[in-house]
Computed example of a mutant assay.
Amino acid sequence: MVLQSLSLQLYSVRHALDDDLPGTLARVAEIGYQQVEASHKLYSRGPELAQAVRDNGLGVPTYTSPLVTLPGREVPDPQAVFAGARELGATAVIDTYIPEEHWTSREDVETIIEGLNTAAVAAAEHGLRVGYHNHWWELEQRFDGRTALEVLVDGLRPEVVMEIDAYWVAVGGEDVLALLDRLGDRVRFLHLKDGPISRNNLEQQPAGKGKLPIEAIIAATPQVEAGAVEFDEYAGDIFEGIAASFEYLRTRTAATA
C-alpha cells in the first residue's frame, strides 16, 4: 500500500520563505515535491505565494488556518480563508493548532466541536471541507478513559476530516496504529515526521530515520488523500531534511513512485 500523494507542509521552511518565497518554492519543487500544504497566514502576505505555486506547477490539497474562535485566539475572516483556499485549489482547510490550555475539560472540547462544525457548514458553501490537526496534548488528555481527540471526533459533523500527525500521536502516549484503526475513514490526511518520539522539536528527523512505524502507518490508511512531510524544527539543514524525507517517501507514494 502506498500514499496517494505527498506534500510538504510549508511551515517546515518558514524561515527560508521569509527570506525568499519564490526561490524557496522553486527549491522545494526541484527536490521533487509536486504538492505543498500552505497557510492562510502565508497567503495573506500578498500575491507572491499564489504566483510561486503556479510558476512551479505545485498542487495545494490542504490549506491551514485557525477556524475556531477561542479566548485569546485570533481567527481571520472565514470568507477570506475559504477564498484563499479556493484560489490555490485546496479541497480542505485544516485548523492545525488549538493550544493545550483549551483542552482541559469536556466543556472545552464541546466549544471546539461547535466551532469546527460551524466552520464546516460555511466551508461547504465554497465546496470545501474542514479538518483538524492534532498535537500530543489531545492524546494525553482523557475523559472517562478516552482521548480528548476521540471525544472531539464523536461530536463532529461527518464531513469534518482529521489530519493526523502520527509523530505527535506517539508522543502523546498512544499506539498510532490502534488510534488510526479507531478513527477509520475520518483520517484523510497525515503529517509524517520521525525521530526518537520526544517533545524536543530539534530531535525531529526525516521519515525513516526514527522510531515511527511509517510503512505500517501508510499501509493502515489507504483512504488518506495526501501525506505531508513536516518538521517543527530541524537541527541540520532543513532542505537536506525535507529532501531525505522525500527520498524515503517517494517510492511509497503513487504519484512519485
Rank of each mutant, 00 (worst) to 15 (best):
N56C: 10
V75I: 09
A29G: 01
E30N: 05
T118S: 14
L116H: 09
T111F: 00
V53E: 11
V121I: 15
T111M: 05
V68S: 05
E30K: 14
L25N: 02
V68Q: 04
D18S: 14
S7V: 01
V109F: 06
L49W: 06
L10D: 02
N117C: 08
W103F: 03
Y33F: 15
A123I: 07
L116Y: 10
E74G: 06
S7G: 01
P76N: 11
V60Y: 03
Y11W: 13
V28C: 04
P71S: 08
P99T: 15
N117P: 04
T69M: 09
A122S: 10
G57L: 04
G32C: 09
L10Y: 06
L70F: 12
I94T: 03
T24E: 05
S7F: 02
A52F: 13
Y11D: 02
I113Q: 15
V13Q: 09
Q51K: 15
R27Q: 13
I94A: 01
P47R: 12
Y63P: 00
L10F: 09
V28P: 07
A80E: 13
T64L: 00
S105P: 02
R14I: 01
H102Q: 13
A119M: 11
D18L: 11
E114L: 11
R27P: 03
A85W: 10
Y33A: 01
E30G: 01
S105W: 03
Q9D: 10
Y33M: 01
D18H: 07
G89S: 09
Q9S: 05
E110S: 10
L21F: 03
W103V: 05
D77V: 07
H102A: 09
D55W: 11
A16D: 14
G46I: 03
